[in-house]
Simulated assay, not measured.
Amino acid sequence: MKLKKIHHIAIICSNYEVSKDFYVRILGLTPLQEVYREDRDSYKLDLKVNGQYQIELFSFPNPPARPSYPEASGLRHLAFEVDDIEEAVLHLTTMQVEVEGIRIDPWTQKKFTFFADPDGLPIELYEC
């Protein structure tokens, strides 16, 4: 077996409209397709990152909270590459998103920081 690339990342949110606004308006992801699945009382929004389909945003009635602190087993965070981390942090703080301080990766010497989506999912910005 040879894996070619990550096809997509699925995110389940607790409040579809709030999360849709966050990922589309604040993060600037482009909606590709939105479907309401009546049998599951669930929305599925396909989002593009920089022109490529990469994220599926799902809603389900009453999903359990995501264990995060202390960190739980499983997927730790979602990371996005940016060209200018200071510009990205300024944009997020202007949109009232709380962002951690910018740090330097001790191995690559690259800048990175974290913030959270409306459900507390950790999101990393990594300057390349």
Rank of each mutant, 00 (worst) to 15 (best):
V99Y: 02
E100Y: 11
D46P: 08
C13P: 00
R37Q: 09
I12N: 10
E98N: 13
E38S: 14
L125H: 04
T108Y: 09
P61C: 10
D21E: 14
F58D: 00
I102V: 06
R103V: 07
F60N: 11
D119S: 02
D83A: 12
D119M: 06
N50M: 15
E81V: 11
K2G: 14
C128V: 13
Y16N: 06
Y43N: 13
M1Y: 09
E87T: 12
N50L: 12
V18H: 09
E17M: 12
D105Y: 05
S14I: 07
D84R: 01
E100N: 13
L75S: 07
F22Y: 08
R66P: 02
H77T: 04
K5E: 14
V49Y: 03
L45W: 06
F112H: 11
E98T: 12
S68G: 15
S73W: 06
E34I: 04
E98R: 09
R76V: 08
I11V: 15
E98P: 07
T93M: 15
L47M: 00
P118T: 02
A79T: 04
E100G: 07
V24C: 05
V35F: 13
K5S: 15
K4P: 05
H77R: 04
E17F: 13
Q54E: 08
T94L: 12
Y53G: 15
Y36P: 03
L3P: 09
E127D: 08
D41I: 06
R40H: 10
K110M: 01
D105N: 11
Y69G: 01
D83H: 13
I11Q: 00
L121G: 06
K48V: 09
A10Q: 10
Q52G: 10
V82Y: 05
D46I: 07
D41P: 01
I6Y: 03
A72P: 02
L75P: 02
D41Y: 04
P64Y: 02
D119N: 05
N15K: 05
A88C: 10
F114Y: 10
D119P: 01
A65C: 12
I85M: 06
L29N: 00
G74Q: 00
P122V: 04
